[in-house]
Structures are given as structure tokens and as C-alpha cells.
Design a protein around this nucleic acid. Sequence first.
DNA 1: TTTGGCACTCGACCGGGGTGAGTGCTACGG
DNA 2: CCGTAGCACTCACCCCGGTCGAGTGCCAAA
Lengths: 347, 347
Amino acid sequence: MTISMNERSRKILEAIVEDYIASAEPVGSKSVSCRHQMGLSPATVRNVMADLEGMGYLASPHASAGRIPTDKGYRFYVDTLLQLRPLKAEERERIERQYASSDRRIDEVLREAVKSLSRLSRYAGIVMAPRVEATVFRHIDFVPLAPGRVLVIFVSRSGEVQNKIIETGINLPAATLEQMTNYLNRVMNGLPLDTVREKLAAEMAQAKIEHDDLQQRVLALSGQALAGEDENARVYIEGTSNILDQPEFADVERMRQLYRVFEQKSQLVDLLDRSRRAHGIQIFIGNETSHSAIAGCSLVTATYETRQGTVGSLGVIGPSRMPYGQVIPIVDYTARIVSQLLEEEYQ
Amino acid sequence: MTISMNERSRKILEAIVEDYIASAEPVGSKSVSCRHQMGLSPATVRNVMADLEGMGYLASPHASAGRIPTDKGYRFYVDTLLQLRPLKAEERERIERQYASSDRRIDEVLREAVKSLSRLSRYAGIVMAPRVEATVFRHIDFVPLAPGRVLVIFVSRSGEVQNKIIETGINLPAATLEQMTNYLNRVMNGLPLDTVREKLAAEMAQAKIEHDDLQQRVLALSGQALAGEDENARVYIEGTSNILDQPEFADVERMRQLYRVFEQKSQLVDLLDRSRRAHGIQIFIGNETSHSAIAGCSLVTATYETRQGTVGSLGVIGPSRMPYGQVIPIVDYTARIVSQLLEEEYQ
DNA sequence: TTTGGCACTCGACCGGGGTGAGTGCTACGG
DNA sequence: CCGTAGCACTCACCCCGGTCGAGTGCCAAA
């Protein structure tokens, strides 16, 4: 009994993973030895499979079924066996076409991206917008809606618009607002948001010394409007019902769990955020996510970026039994396209 | 065999509907005659039930199960038998508290509403925002992002913000943009959106005569920015996973269908739009919706309105086997609160 | 008109035998 | 020593028949 991964064991593991991905059914020794004519008898294959099971790459659902890959098995497959199936030109074109109608506003682009991801992968697409903190100040505007109530609109350089209604308590004169608008737009333009915050704080201190109450108030408004949004709101999901077609989710209880996760989003935020910090393609398999509610699922993610260096992540979530070779290029290419579209903003 | 609905038949129908709502299981003659001590033997109840089945109010899933209400049965129940269970003070309070943190921006309010609906009803909440067409012009702003690319921001009087990036082709000078901003904000303020559109068209014609190409272009921009958004994007849904707890959705195929509907939204838009046109509480039961994909489901909807007279609708979607007496007051009260919050905008 | 009685229906549940895919073990041969 | 053939064994799955029980429909009596 060789407790090691020689060439033959790898080939067999590869065959099993691929068969299982294709069929969703436990694969037995015979089908491996037949379909992948490698001149080995079922009995030999069986011995190897027993070894692979011993090493934790395979598991048997029950005694007389075939084997299915474990998370560790998928991991090994993805890391060392997998060969990518690059996109055909027509597929690339199809992805690109998807964005033709979008007006390149970042949220529009991301919405198209999530649709495209789910359509192409036939799983659920997920996209996380870059954090507001990382954006650059472009424009601010105050629109008085009613006495004591002001709408503050903030525009980032990438064209993201954020707005908030703020109760001012007192009635701020339109002249003050306008003056402050001009001032802020002149001073803050092009600064990253955290710098803007610091400057605002400084200005407020200054205004306090000068006893300029109105100015101080308007500055406070701006600060409030720039407060980060709810993280969960920055996640787009689409195509969740695709996953329902997968045989592994015939069980209602699992679906229920999964949909809870989709609705809460916080676990997805966590994963996408982890992915964001590590650049490039990232793959989470099953329990590696350490979120037990999505056991049996994998995420394939990639990061995209804008010229400002702000970074978000996007990807696909589906069953671990996923054709990684196809999904990875889809995610990768989508991330590239998104980055490209968002960079064009400034050229 | 009396082919009519006398008092007794009604009582029995009521008992059956309520038992079924409570238990999700076909109800037999015995349980009716026992639990609702109305001094009738099971046999008598059976006779009545046979009549009710003949009239189409009940159906038997199979020969030796009890009866379950048909859509027609639910309809009769809702229209003539149902008694509402009004909300307790503490429940009303709980609803109101939900909105305490919201900044009363319309989309914020609606987002809270949809959460609250789903949490209270324990089904899925749905909310449709009023159509942009019905809003009133408050403010417009042009922010040049890059040469040939302008961000147009439009604010309605109720504080709704809509924005769009538009490729202008040529580089519009900042001065022209600013001038037009001031002009439009002065002229259009307070006009309903369709009037604004007409005026824009008129102005464009005028500009054309005067060969003022730049002006004409900016006006065109404004027109584009005011174009209505995608209808489907105006629907909020939340709490869909609540529905998965219902025993009638243990069947995966039905869930799948239902989730397709939630993802597409168009059928929901249709129903909410129907509801919007008819004021007040509206109830769609099962096939009455004429969308077969949501057979077995009911919608309870109500309209809300702003002072401007713009109207949207909100409600709850769940299985037809729904405690209407509880759900209706929830939906009704939520609609009132939303209307109230949106009216306060202008006081 | 209501009620008790009774035969009937039909799904749910249970247990058993057959089937077949797949395994582990062992013995044999290069 | 490694690969292979053979064989007994396991176990999910399917089909079958029987039982059970809830609920019905109908009829005759009160």
C-alpha cells in the first residue's frame, strides 16, 4: 500500500472528480477503469481508491456505492490537477456584449456583471461593490427638501452617487448651503474619502473656534452623508434559482439553509471581503469557508479594481461539484472586463 | 340537498378553512363536529361538506383524506366570513419603531417596510415604489466626470435621487452646464415630471431654431436622465425564505417555480400594479392572479400614497393557506405608516 | 332532517425478498 | 512485489403484499 500520490493515483483521482462533477453520482471502480482506458483493471483501481479514501481525498456515502470527492479531494483537484478550459472567442464576445447597454455607472456595471456571471456559470452570481471608504471625492450637493430637512448628495469620482436625508433641526439658509457647496467642491475635489473626513473634522474644529455655528452644522451634515453604507447592501446576488436545479439541493432543508444565507448576506460579505484582500482568483471549497450553512458549496471569486486602486470582488457560488475548469475562466474574464470598464471612466 | 349557503354551511366552511389554515392538513368531518361544538354529528357535517364540495368551495385531495378549501372557498371565507384580528397596541408600536432609524428617504422607508412586512407576517414582504413618472421635479445637477461623460442627478420633491451617466460625445463646457443647471432648477421646480418632459421638448425645439447646439444637447441630456427606470428594479422583496418553512413547499419543484417568480419579478410587478390602480386592501388568491406559477399562493396588498398623490403598493405573499385575519391588519397598518412617513416630508 | 351504522376506499406504513452496483479480501501469476 | 481475477459480502433501491386507520358515501332509523 503506497501512502503517496504517484502519477497513477492522481490520474484516478482526477477521473473520479471529473466523473462525479459530470454525473452527480458516486463513481465506482469499474466506470473509472472502463471509461478512462488506462489499462488498469477495476480491482487495481479499487486498491488505489481505498488508498485515496484513507488519505481523505474520497469518501463513500455508504458501503456499496462508489466514492465521491471530499473537500480535500476537490482542493487537490483544483490546485494540482485542474486544467482550465479557456473561453472561446464567441463566449468572450457574449460577455462583452452584455455591457454594451450599460451606462458604465459603477452600480450599473456591477449589476450587469452579476447577471452575466449567473447566466454563464448557471449558478448564482455574486458581486460586492468596493467600499465607499476607498472612493475619491468628486462632488457634493445640498438640496433643501423642507425646513429642517436637507438632502445631501455625494458623488465619487467613479460616478457613484450616495445620498442621505438629514434632519438638521434648524433651518439652514440656502445661501449658507450654496456657499458651503462651492467651498467643499473646490477644496475636497480629488481627495480620497478618509482624507476628506479628516479635513472635515479639522474644519469643524476651526468653525467652532470662530463660533460659526451654521458652517459647523453644514460640515457636520457632510460628515454624516459620507458615513459608510450598510455592508450588506453592497452585495448583489442573482441567479440563485439556478442552484435549485442541482440534484444535491433536492433536499428542502439544505435549500432552506442556503436561502437564509442569501438573504442575510453577511456570510457572503465575509467571504467576498476575504477574497478582496487577496488579489486574483480565489476558491473556497465547502467547509473551507468555515460557514457550515454553505457546506457542500464552493465559491469562485476574483477581484476587480478601478484605476483609483479601489477593489471589489465578484464570483460565483454553486455546489462544490462544479466544473471549475469552466467557471474559473468565466469569473476571471468577468473581473477583467469589469476592471476595464471601470478604468475607462478616466481615460 | 340544499344548494345554498345557509348559516350552518357557512359556519362549517369557516371551521374547515380555519382548521386547515392552522394545521395544513385536510380536515375531516369528525374534527369539525368535535372541535367546534355546534351540536352536529359527523354524519351531518359530512352531508354539508359534500354539498360544499359540489358547489366548489372544498376539494378532496383523495378519497379518504379530509377536505381542503379551494380558491373559491378561500375567496368566500375572506369576503364574507373572515373577522379581522386588529393589531394590539404593542404590535403597532413595534411596527412604528422599525422606522425610527430610517432617514425618511423614500427608498429607505420602503426598505424598512418590506423588512417589517416579512418579519411580522412571517411570509415574504413585497413593496413597489411609485412610478417615477408620478414624481415632482425638485432639482437637477450635472457633474462632468470626464471629457464627454456627464453624470446627471435628478432629485424629486420627495427626495428620491436618480442618476445616470451619459456619453455626450463632445465635451460640454462647465459654464454651459452650470448655466443650464440654474435655468432648469428655476423653471422646472415643482412641476410634475410629465410636464417637465413636455417643457423640455419645447425648449429643445426653441434651441434648435436658435441654433444653440450646446443648449440643445444639455436639454437632451436632461431628457435622457428623466427616462423611467426599469420597472422590475422598483420592486423590493424580502423574507422569501420564510415561505420555505411552510409545509406546502416541501416539494422542491414548487419552490423552484416560486423562486423563479421572485427573481424575474415581472409577475409581481404586474400584480402590484393592478393593486396600485385599485385603492385600499386587495387580495389575490391562488389562480385569481392568473399567473399559474404562483398557484397555491395568495397576495395581500394595500396602496400607500404621498401627498403628491403618487401611489405605490405593498403587501405580503404567502401560501393561500394564510391567516388572513392577522395578515390583513399588518399590511393595512404598514401602508398607513408608510403613507404617513412620506407625507411628513412636506409638513 | 338528523343521526347512527356500516361497508368501502385509498393513502401511509411496514416488512421481506430480489436485484445490482460496488466493495474488500484473498489467492494467483508475471 | 505489484497487478489481476475471483468471490463473498454489503447495502441501497425497488417492488410487492398486507395491515391499519382516517374518512367517506349511503342507507335506514329516529
